[in-house]
Amino acid sequence: MTRTTPRWRPSWLDAVLALAVAGAGVVEAYGRAGPGPGEVHRPGLVAAGALVAGLLLLLRRASPVGTLAALTALSALLRVAVMDDDYPLAAWQFYSNLILVHTVGSEPAGPRTRAAGIGVVLAAYALLQTLPGQDLAESLISAIFMGVAYGSGILLRRQTRRTIRMAERAAVAAAEERTRIARELHDVISHHVSLMTLQAAGVRLLLADDPARERERDLLHGVERAGRDTVEELRMLLGVLRDGRAPAGLGSLDELAAPLRAAGLDVRVATTGTPRPLPPSLGLAVYRVVQEALTNTLKHAGAGSVEVAVGWTVHAVTVEVRDDGRGPGDDNGRGPAGGRHGLAGMRERVAQHGGTLHAGGGPDGGYTVAATFPLGAGA
């Protein structure tokens, strides 16, 4: 299983931590402002430092090592510009250091980045020891808290990696189980449905052309058609179990148009009416008609643009593919001299579902393929 790295963006937790540290720092700076010992002599600068620390916490997931290094540099500047021997360690400095140290420990990284992270953590701890009011007890307390923050980050990283591995194994096991179930269903159900269909066909042939048995032949023919449709739909549904992907249908038209747009063809897809769920075989038939028409347009029409119009009504779904290329009879590969097999295949798909198909030149030039598929009782 391949994992892609999602684009980084701040989480709600990042925003809450940033607001908490910045707000606490501003309150502390102005709440303890004053000229006396233990008071903040320059609250404006200390409050500004708290706001910058909050911004760094907001960006912590983008670059953990970089944000911790920036916080350490900020603390060093404040130490020189603001603090004196009577000013104790600001609470927001300690809290923000702990949060960023934990983030550095939890971030998946290579050996070089991890070594850089350890160096920045040690530098942040060393700077804390130069702040006023630090003695042996304070140094030990700081070491314990920063060690726990870094260690808990490492544990979180390992637990996350373990959870991802377990999820990958579970996904593989689920895929294998889907394959096993699909194989068993195919062996059991498809065999018996196909056998029933063949038996119905055999009985219909035994009735020969007796005019008195026309009603029976029609009923048996309906049984055959239903059996073939059931086997086809079952095959596609089992493909979903095996591959975990839904069969192609009208919901895949944009994906179908993407490579044609990349090839320089302007493909526009428009839908009118209210879309409805389609049986897998019918959805695939509609998709194949559009695919064949677009392929012919790309190969033979010399068109610059093509429009795919999908219309939904109560009783039918219609698809129309109109291009602005060469019309029929222009050696474009879609007239009688070429494209017969593709057009015949489209007619067969449409006729299998009781629909109609028209293909030919448009009133304003170009080429148009239009198919109508009945829905509900009309099918």
Results as ranks from 00 to 15, higher is better:
residue 236 M to N: 07
residue 285 A to G: 07
residue 256 L to I: 01
residue 28 E to K: 01
residue 215 R to M: 09
residue 273 G to H: 05
residue 33 A to Y: 01
residue 138 E to M: 15
residue 123 A to N: 07
residue 308 V to N: 00
residue 24 A to M: 11
residue 48 A to V: 08
residue 296 N to D: 06
residue 58 L to R: 00
residue 289 V to R: 01
residue 182 A to F: 03
residue 38 G to C: 08
residue 201 A to E: 13
residue 236 M to T: 07
residue 174 A to E: 15
residue 7 R to T: 13
residue 92 W to M: 07
residue 39 E to R: 12
residue 142 S to Y: 12
residue 80 V to D: 08
residue 178 R to T: 08
residue 115 A to Q: 08
residue 108 P to V: 02
residue 340 R to P: 05
residue 192 H to M: 11
residue 248 A to R: 05
residue 303 A to T: 02
residue 87 Y to K: 00
residue 28 E to A: 04
residue 359 A to M: 09
residue 215 R to A: 14
residue 114 R to I: 11
residue 45 L to R: 12
residue 201 A to L: 14
residue 17 L to A: 04
residue 222 G to I: 04
residue 234 L to M: 09
residue 191 H to G: 14
residue 155 L to P: 05
residue 146 M to Q: 13
residue 298 L to D: 05
residue 159 Q to A: 15
residue 87 Y to N: 09
residue 175 A to Q: 09
residue 73 A to V: 14
residue 37 P to K: 07
residue 378 G to P: 13
residue 214 E to R: 13
residue 311 G to L: 03
residue 76 A to Y: 14
residue 264 G to P: 02
residue 337 A to G: 15
residue 4 T to G: 15
residue 244 G to R: 03
residue 148 V to S: 10
residue 112 R to I: 13
residue 249 G to A: 06
residue 375 L to H: 03
residue 327 G to L: 07
residue 315 H to F: 07
residue 100 L to Q: 02
residue 146 M to N: 11
residue 295 T to D: 14
residue 115 A to P: 01
residue 284 L to P: 00
residue 320 E to C: 06
residue 193 V to G: 03
residue 246 A to I: 09
residue 350 V to A: 01
residue 148 V to G: 11
residue 214 E to H: 08
residue 86 D to G: 15
residue 121 V to R: 00
residue 117 G to R: 00
residue 180 R to I: 08
residue 369 V to Y: 00
residue 255 E to V: 08
residue 196 M to I: 06
residue 219 L to R: 08
residue 178 R to M: 09
residue 92 W to P: 02
residue 32 R to N: 15
residue 99 I to A: 10
residue 332 N to D: 15
residue 188 V to N: 10
residue 294 L to H: 00
residue 191 H to M: 12
residue 26 V to C: 07
residue 275 P to H: 06
residue 212 A to C: 04
residue 150 Y to W: 08
residue 240 V to L: 14
residue 63 S to N: 15
residue 9 R to T: 13
residue 265 L to N: 01
residue 296 N to V: 04
residue 274 T to P: 10
residue 363 P to H: 04
residue 243 D to Y: 10
residue 317 V to T: 00
residue 100 L to S: 05
residue 152 S to M: 15
residue 184 E to T: 10
residue 359 A to I: 05
residue 276 R to E: 14
residue 339 G to I: 00
residue 269 V to A: 01
residue 217 R to F: 08
residue 63 S to F: 06
residue 379 A to W: 12
residue 199 Q to P: 07
residue 305 S to C: 07
residue 72 T to F: 03
residue 309 A to Y: 04
residue 354 G to F: 00
residue 374 P to Y: 02
residue 259 P to M: 02
residue 283 G to Q: 00
residue 201 A to M: 12
residue 60 R to E: 02
residue 265 L to G: 03
residue 82 V to W: 02
residue 364 D to E: 12
residue 190 S to N: 11
residue 62 A to T: 05
